[in-house]
Design a protein around this nucleic acid. Structure first.
Length: 700
DNA sequence: GTTAGGG
DNA sequence: CCCTAAC
């Protein structure tokens, strides 16, 4: 049979924007909308997702009206970089960045000390516990919700790690309006003007809370590299609110390759919103997202594998994730039904994720209006507020700038015959899956994960004086599923099984015929005529093994990690054991045509019932295929062969192979019953060709 | 450890 | 793919 040749592409990142080079050079802004319509892969979606994610936590941000001032409008710049990875694969790096730091800034708001009071925490959205990083970009505001929705954002997420670099530091006291020095001169007056127009109120109006609820929009995941987002510190996470900006306002700015250094992307999970502080950090930090290896479970025909970063291993994996992932794929953002500790958090208007608050010059966090609003909205307890206040007054701000987010490396294998469109869809799906549901941000200080969300930055050691290089951020799975640490007193680990967890499944579009697999280093392989699925298997297996390894070792799952390692660490022994008891379900790896070919050939020769031999003969090198798998596959092949083509799903198996399956099955069935019929059978011209090996063997 | 079959 | 009974 003819197998399609596949192309393997390694993606170290996605370049969001496909902004025309020329444009970029010119540093012009490209209307967001335009880009979207441009059928770009979704830079838009990606951005939206990212932005949304960062900005909102729908769950956590129920009702906030506040938004960031219009002034905060930010432009997202995109940078397209092409990289050549070591393995020779082409890597596409998608980076978006805000062009104007002045316009878009990503600030890390201080963490608000939280009380240990369980009640308190329960009220908060899980993500809120600490300072939230909220990044809101004006530009993103509007499109966000809808776009995001359209963007199919999925729940599960892998972890991303990013490093924060210290950017040009701007230190200011809380009182200072922190004005970021714009590195870019890109903004035009007009732009600036525009930016300034939107008022908070307007924004709020635009984004009614209800909408958010109704839509159940998930915070988009984010990711854009080099994107600086300014978020009012007081901004709620309410997606709607955040995205209230007009579309017009949203611009993608292409930026020159000036700052390519940033290859990082980082996500900021909204899940853990920080209570944004009115103050803005003094420093601007550039976060670099280190790409990790993400592993993606195969979906239907297409399989995307991404490497998961070791860091990510930290354990964001969960078996449950796998199962959930199936359902997780619904794009319409489902409202997350379950909140970790309390469902209240959802309704809690107070929730705000503010991790990074965007501050404009005005809002430095000092903006009284925003401030008050924030409190009101968040509904923080007075005590908390007080703490907050005091904290702020004496504390200097740490200003963080996220330079870029880097999408985890993904490897895609797709037939040459696949269309570009299918490739795009596949990639898009992979990306949306990854960012899909929410990401939470993990903070790493000098390589160590900062677990205590209640500690202040100061207490944690993150201060203006610190080397920001030591600060890193990682993307973690949605906290709502995992954030035990947030509830010191409670038992975090309850992960309700019945609760629909967002899953992440990186499945390729079902409609696609492409098979995406991993293997960067391998050349496209053709099935061998021999029984062995040689290189093919080897490659695949090696990759898979790698995946498996990382998965098991790290405990991190590809898709939706249920919890982080740390989380696990704090889990009670019994719970832990419980988890460990449940072996992780293996990732689904659809059989390729070449594998089917090999299987059929082996079975024709060896017969059914000798799966171990079949395994050794044809899949000895495919470590991930057990004889049970082969047996099961044969079973399904047989079933497939017996049903009408219309009823078949998945990557179509050549009829020829199916015919051989039926013939072999018939033949061997007869063999078992009456060995004598063997000869008779062999004479049959129908199977003769396919069974000639068998003949030889038998006859010989 | 394999096989076979249901889930 | 998982789980298990049966061998």
């Amino acid at each position: 049979m003819v197998l399609q040749k596949r192309l393997d592409c390694g993606f170290s990142g996605y370049q969001v924007p496909a902004i025309p080079r020329a444009t970029r050079s010119a540093r012009k802004r490209v209307p967001f909308r335009k880009r979207v319509e441009g059928n770009q892969i979704s830079a838009f979606d990606l951005l939206a997702a990212v932005a949304g994610k960062l900005l909102l936590d729908k769950e956590s941000a129920p009702a906030t009206n506040n938004t960031r001032s219009a002034e905060d409008q930010c432009a997202v710049e995109t940078n397209t970089l092409k990289e050549e990875s070591e393995d020779g694969y082409q890597s596409l790096k998608l980076e978006t960045s805000n062009q104007d730091s002045a316009n878009a800034e990503f600030f890390a708001s201080e963490l608000v000390p939280q009380t240990s009071d369980p009640n308190y925490s329960s009220k908060q959205s899980p993500s809120l516990r600490n300072g939230a990083l909220v990044a809101t970009s004006d530009c993103l505001e509007r499109f966000d919700a809808q776009k995001l929705m359209n963007g199919k954002i999925k729940n599960e997420i892998g972890g991303l790690a990013c490093n924060v670099e210290t950017g040009p530091s701007v230190c200011g006291t809380s009182g200072d309006g922190i004005k970021t020095v714009s590195e870019n001169k890109l903004l035009t007056d007009e732009e600036l003007d525009r930016t300034g127009k939107a008022s908070i109120g307007e924004v709020a109006d635009k984004c009614p809370l209800e909408d958010a609820v109704v839509l159940d929009v998930k915070p988009p995941a984010l990711v854009s590299s080099d994107t600086s987002i300014k978020v009012p510190s007081c901004v709620d996470h309410n997606p709607l609110v955040s995205f209230s900006a007009k579309q017009d306002d949203v611009n993608i700015v292409s930026r020159d390759d000036e700052e390519k250094s940033s290859g990082c992307t980082h996500p900021s999970p909204l899940r853990e919103p920080f209570r944004s502080t009115p103050h803005i950090g003094d420093r601007r930090i550039r976060k670099i997202l280190a790409s990790k290896y993400w592993k993606v479970g195969p979906r239907s025909k297409n399989v995307l594998y991404s490497k998961y970063d070791e860091n990510m291993k930290s354990g964001y994996c969960s078996r449950s994730a796998y199962k959930h992932s199936r359902s997780g794929r619904n794009y319409p953002f489902k409202k997350r039904k379950f909140f970790y500790c309390s469902s209240e958090s959802n309704s809690d208007g107070g929730t705000s994720n503010d991790g990074i608050s965007d501050s404009t010059e005005n809002n430095n966090g000092n903006n009284p209006i925003l401030y008050s609003k924030m409190h009101r909205v968040t509904g923080e307890s007075s005590s908390l507020a007080d703490q907050h206040k005091s904290f702020n007054s004496r504390d200097s701000h740490v200003k963080l700038r996220i330079k870029s987010f880097r999408v985890p490396e993904l490897f895609i294998e797709i037939p040459e015959s696949a269309t570009v469109g299918s490739l795009k869809r596949t990639v898009m799906e992979a990306v949306t899956d990854i960012f899909g549901d929410g990401l939470c941000v993990g903070v790493l200080l000098q390589g160590k994960k900062v677990k205590d969300d209640n500690k202040t930055l100061l207490q944690t050691g993150i201060s203006c004086d610190n080397q920001m290089d030591a600060l890193g951020f990682s993307l973690e799975p949605n906290p709502s599923h995992t954030t035990p640490s947030l509830f010191p007193g409670g038992s975090p680990l309850k992960i309700p099984r019945d609760t629909p967890l967002p899953l992440a499944r990186y499945a390729a579009n079902p409609g696609l015929v492409n098979q995406v697999t991993c293997d960067p280093s391998l050349e496209p392989h053709m099935p061998n005529s021999g029984n062995y699925i040689e290189s093919n298997n080897n490659c695949a297996s090696s990759l898979i093994d790698m995946f498996d390894k990382s998965t098991t070792e790290s405990t991190a799952l590809i898709a939706v990690p249920a919890m982080s390692i740390e989380t696990l660490a704090v889990v009670p022994a019994h719970q832990k054991s419980k988890q460990s008891d449940v072996a992780q379900r293996r990732i689904r790896r659809p059989f390729s045509i070449s594998e089917v070919e090999a299987l059929v050939q082996a079975v024709e020769k060896l017969g059914t019932g000798r799966w171990r031999d079949v395994k050794l003969r044809a899949f000895d090198n495919a470590k991930h295929r057990t004889y049970v798998d082969l047996k099961d596959k044969w079973k399904t092949l047989l079933h497939t062969a017996r049903i009408s083509p219309q009823q078949r799903r998945g990557e179509p198996v050549p009829q020829e192979l199916l015919d051989r399956v039926l013939n072999a099955h018939t033949y061997w069935s007869q063999q078992q019953q009456s060995p004598e019929s063997c000869l008779l059978y062999h004479n049959s011209t129908v199977i003769a060709s396919s069974l000639h090996d068998v003949d030889e063997k038998i006859l010989g």
